[in-house]
């Protein structure tokens, strides 16, 4: 039989595409960036100094014989690259970007941790973009993403060097609160490092784990199913 069969996308791609689509309706455009990154874009420009305990917050893959290069530990590197490029070309805020992409952590794996996973980064900068806007955008995103379910978000104080204030954000689906993402108001040092006037402009950034969203949306119990090259995960 040679009946015509349409192909299928990996569930992570489905999640990524849907997340991007929702953020586009909220005014974001898509940007992407490199996975092999220099320390400036992955750490220094993001207000994570050398020899500082903040560097230990993420287990990093360093590259042999290429001092100063790492596998990016977050999609936040692309915030920096985007803003540098914008300023260089004479542009300025306001803007809102999302960055879907693969990131890496040098840690042992289990059902909920992988050495590689996907994130979607958000960055919105303007003259008066605030925590209230961040709450609005994220709440709207989750409402659309978990269409038909009762959802809410709540903020808890946290710390990431590239934001101030920084938050952990919990998502409620039904009755249950789940710790889901990190976010915050972009640190003035980060804007300054990219050549953006931090007296005039402010805004927020966030990073959501897409593998986690995939596991939630499709009730997948083990994140390691994702990267086996196994088509049995393409069920949707």
């Amino acid at each position: 039989m040679s009946e015509y069969k349409k192909g299928s996308l990996h569930p992570l791609t489905l999640i990524m595409n849907e997340a991007v689509s929702i953020f586009k309706t909220l005014g974001f455009v898509v940007e992407i960036g490199p996975e092999l990154e220099d320390e400036w874009h992955n750490f220094d420009a993001l207000n994570v100094p050398h020899d500082h305990p903040a560097r230990d917050m993420q287990d990093t893959f360093f590259i042999k014989d290429q001092t100063g290069f790492v596998l990016r530990t977050h999609t936040s590197n692309t915030q920096i690259r985007f803003m540098e490029k914008l300023v260089k070309s004479g542009g300025k805020p306001p803007f809102a970007i999302v960055v879907p992409g693969k990131v890496f952590r040098n840690e042992s794996t289990d059902a909920t941790h992988e050495m590689q996973f996907y994130q979607i980064e958000g960055l919105m900068i303007g003259e008066d973009i605030s925590v209230a806007d961040m709450k609005g955008v994220l709440l709207e995103f989750f409402k659309k993403f978990f269409d038909g379910e009762s959802v809410d978000i709540r903020l808890r104080p946290s710390f990431f060097p590239f934001v101030e204030p920084g938050f952990e954000i919990d998502l409620r689906i039904g009755e249950k609160w789940i710790e889901l993402l990190g976010a915050g108001m972009v640190h003035p040092n980060v804007l300054k490092n990219c050549g953006i006037d931090n007296e005039k402009y402010q805004g927020f950034a966030f990073g959501i784990g897409l593998d986690r969203l995939m596991m939630m949306k499709f009730k997948i119990s083990d994140v390691r199913f994702s990267y086996q090259g196994d088509l049995r995960i393409n069920q949707f």
Binding site: G27, G126, A132
Partner: peptide, 10 residues
Amino acid sequence: ITPKLPVVNS
């Protein structure tokens, strides 16, 4: 803090 939806023109 009450959530609100920003409009970004770019």
